[in-house]
Design a protein around this nucleic acid. Sequence first.
RNA 1: GGGCGAAUAGCUCAGCUGGUUCAGAGCGCCUGCCUUACACGCAGGAAGUCGGGGGUUCGAAUCCCUCUUCGCCCACCA
Length: 890
Amino acid sequence: MPDFALPPQYDPSSVEKRLYGRWLDAGIFTAHVDSPKKPYVIVIPPPNVTAVLHMGHGLNDTLQDALIRFERMRGREALWLPGTDHAGIATQNVVEKLLAQEGKTRFDLGRDAFVQRVAAFVSETGTTILEQLKTIGCSCDWSRTRYTLSPELSRAVREVFVRLWEEGLIYRGHRVIHWCPRCLTALSDEEAEFQETNGHLYYIHYRLADGSGQVTVATTRPETLFGDTAIVVNPEDPRGAPYVGKKASLPLTGIEIPILADESVDKEFGTGFVKVTPAHDANDFEVGMRHGLAMPLIMTEDGRMGDVGKREAGSGKRVPPELEGVDRFEARKKVVKMLEAAGQLAKVESHQHAVRRCYRCDSIVEPRLSDQWFVKMKPLAEPALDAFRTGEVRFVPERWETTYTQWLEGIRDWNISRQLWWGHRIPVFTCTACQHQWADRVDPTACPKCGGPVTQDPDVLDTWFSSWLWPFSTLGWPDDTPDLRHFYPGHTLVTAPEIIFFWVARMIMVGIHVMKRAPFGTVYLHGTVRDTKHRKMSKSLGNGIDPLDVVRLYGADALRWTAVAGVSLGSDLILDNEDLEATFAPGRNFANKLWNIGRFILSQLPDQVPAIASVDRSTLTLADRWILSRCQTTIEAATRANEQYRLDEAAKLCYEFVWGDLADWYVETVKPRLAAVPAAYAVLGYCFDMALRLLHPVVPFITEELWQKLPGRKAGELLAAAAWPAPSPAMRDAAADTAFGRVQELITAIRSIRAEYRIAPKTKLGAVLTSRDPKDYEAESDTICRLAGLEAFSVGAAPNGVGAHAVLRDGGDVFVGLGGSIDVTQECKRLTTDRDRLDKQLAGLSAKLANESFVARAPAEVVAREREKEQAWRAQVAALNDKLKALGCA
RNA sequence: GGGCGAAUAGCUCAGCUGGUUCAGAGCGCCUGCCUUACACGCAGGAAGUCGGGGGUUCGAAUCCCUCUUCGCCCACCA
């Protein structure tokens, strides 16, 4: 009995930290520019500096790590570049909330102090998530960790801004933008997310100024009526004809506004009359521009009613005093009441429509007329579309291509200015003397034109304005660094489809614009992590799973296993947060299985295991040849699957090989031979080594731990830096596949009989096999005896004694002697069931073959195959009928 | 309003170019086993009219059409 030094259960917590340290010490995650190897580069989607690891990262980063480890083992100079994003709004919000607990606002601190406060906060929390990535095994090149707000990357941001400015691609726009009244900043179109909302449609009477009647408008936002500067009606609409050209007076204030014709009005919706609030609705703004309307702002920046549009013609006293300072939604209720009291509220209908919300704080966005900096996107979008069309960039899975192209085709200019304090200050300067305005790479001290004093734009840039540079700003651009030359462009971008617009498309656009090459060739888009009700996992829903809990309870490999094997290409990962056991046990159990195969092997193998190449193939048994063949099939299929980003499939193939073939069958067959036969050592050692290599990208810890213990390891050798298995086609052996398959079938059939007749496991039986081709069975007769619990196994004619039968696929028959214990009725029933099932299948098959069209039209090989099958089944049925007759069954 | 995806065993999902028993895996369930690598295990089972309907084809879970249900993305109908 072997004396195992290792415990029967794998304990991840005792090895993970140590192994990660070894990898770091060996420096194998560090990429080198002077390496002769071909580079392979992934840049991490930088998590927010304030983020803590959640399952979304768990999925995203595990996939990246599996890819990078696969390519590293395949001999590429693999660079996985990590880092964090300063996340303008999100981070500012976090610190503002902390300040609020002290009863302060950022305005109490002032800009400089606030920015310092955020920076201090970030310096404390900013590396948390990167440290957490290490606990799940991420093999990032930590020597190249970057941060979007670092001095180096800030320089890249500024350089790009100035270049775009110089190229005329940045301009100041005066229009209605999305405004978050809580964050007090403008947002881009992408940052203002649509959400279906149940609201109301209010019908309001606007009396004509001449007292001759009234028109009724329908609106979802009655509180904005104070900013109305016109009513419009479709010129084709006969209902409008009597009114166009007249004036209406605003309810509650009596301000007179014109009734105009405008084609943008949908005749079918509402009453056909539309109130126009140019400063608080993007559509109305367009109408206002067409008709030269005044555009008064009637809300403060924080969303309360008030006259603030001083620079606009027509501004002035518009909001009634009793509404001054009232929140917009409160004001809505009040206005409705006031209208009702004035007899000007016709009716209220419930109405479902989409409202935009701030993607960071979920507040309802207020459309607001404002001056902002924009990037002209059309010139950038065209080359990005070309990059897709020429195949320079491709998407996996392909279905995201249309999302990408459609967005680019309809691209709109990008509002990049944010009225925040946390971020890259916009490098636009204005001379207070001569009004000259320019963008500058360095802070100027005086106006270059007149020498006058200079002020800088107070706003900061959209966070994504630094993110979109990530693939090259991280490599040292704008300097022409060795890193940049060697590692740009990268290869694979792994991310979620949610940020195709925010990030992926923009990286491609600016990458081509600045670097002349798209930043990566493949965009690999994975799904979203959801709970069993298919709701996105989120902190606010409380349905999340903490990856660190999983690591603690089941090990990092178990987490990774579920992330990789639990989801097919591009589909969502559904996890049960209420049943962690069901969710993560498979990975843990598999790791434990590996552990125990390893334990067994280590207890058996000598210190010197012969290399598989040195083994004379003629000394191999059928089982040897079979497992080697299976090993090769797995190597080839898993490699192909990984190349096609089918990481789940590769993982499952390896799982099947290890558990289903190696453990369940080969290890069992080889046990009695191990002590004596060197070839058995070689085969077992080789297959296990290959399995560990194949599985390493997915479950790096357990595989490294076991690989280290295998005999013949040189000091300092690491699986993480070892070579990916090369296929050895000579080991493929179709004959062995078939022959061993027969052995398995026979053993399973006998076991099945044992179970059916409730034969105690310890009871040894005798069995006789009749087969057309018995030699494969004879070669493994020892295996058959041990695995099927036989004391004797022979090939020959079945005896006439009492026993149970099983018919094999080739029409062969196995007779299992059960002594006097056989229940003939039961045996008849068993065999009859089998016979009937086969008979039915056979009838179907025969009908198929009798069908002339099938024989004529199906490919010859298919027909031939079906014929063979028919013959085999016929033989099986005949054999079964013989047995039934011999037993005297009805 | 447009686009995309999903629907297969009780649950979570594979099933790629239609054809090898193709109807599978894991979890759960049932039966028997602590067989000297592993009970996080071993062996043997039960379990699905592949969402409905139509079509193409010698042949459909797989391709086409349509309907139903669910989910996501995009969209200025106030």
